[in-house]
């Protein structure tokens, strides 16, 4: 697994069991469309984009995404999830070159 930089943020910072929270994922990725040309060499820059994102909360798949090259460079994905016990939210994202990355965050409900 390579180490592409990513951030997962849960909003609000403090949450309780049963609460629906916002999950923000940001990834550093060029999201090349395969249609841009290199300014100097005039060669087409090959397509390079995230094609799949999977959110797993305590072993249960809660959200999956098929992604295409139209998402902006350094893409942002915002979804929601219902807090259901302490544990981990783990996000796996792959790109069209076969690169696989994983990023996770601890889920610790208060009260």
């Amino acid at each position: 697994m390579s180490k592409r930089k990513a951030i997962i943020k849960i909003k609000p910072n403090k949450y309780a069991n049963g609460e629906v929270v916002k999950v923000n994922l940001m990834v550093m990725h060029p999201m090349e469309t395969g249609m841009r040309k290199d300014k100097e060499t005039k060669a087409t820059i090959p397509a390079h984009y995230i094609n799949n994102v999977k959110f797993v909360y305590n072993g249960k798949v809660i959200t999956t995404m098929n992604v295409w090259e139209s998402l902006s460079t350094n893409p942002v994905f915002t979804t929601y999830m219902k807090i259901d016990g302490e544990g981990e939210l783990s996000v796996t994202f792959t790109d069209n070159t076969g690169e696989v990355n994983e990023k996770s965050i601890k889920i610790t409900p208060k009260g």
Binding site: K5, A6, I7, K11, N24, M26, M28, N74, V76, T78
Partner: peptide, 12 residues
């Protein structure tokens, strides 16, 4: 602003 990709760069 809530999701500013530069946050990742600042972390670096």
């Amino acid at each position: 602003l809530e999701n500013n990709p530069a946050d990742i760069m600042i972390e670096s």
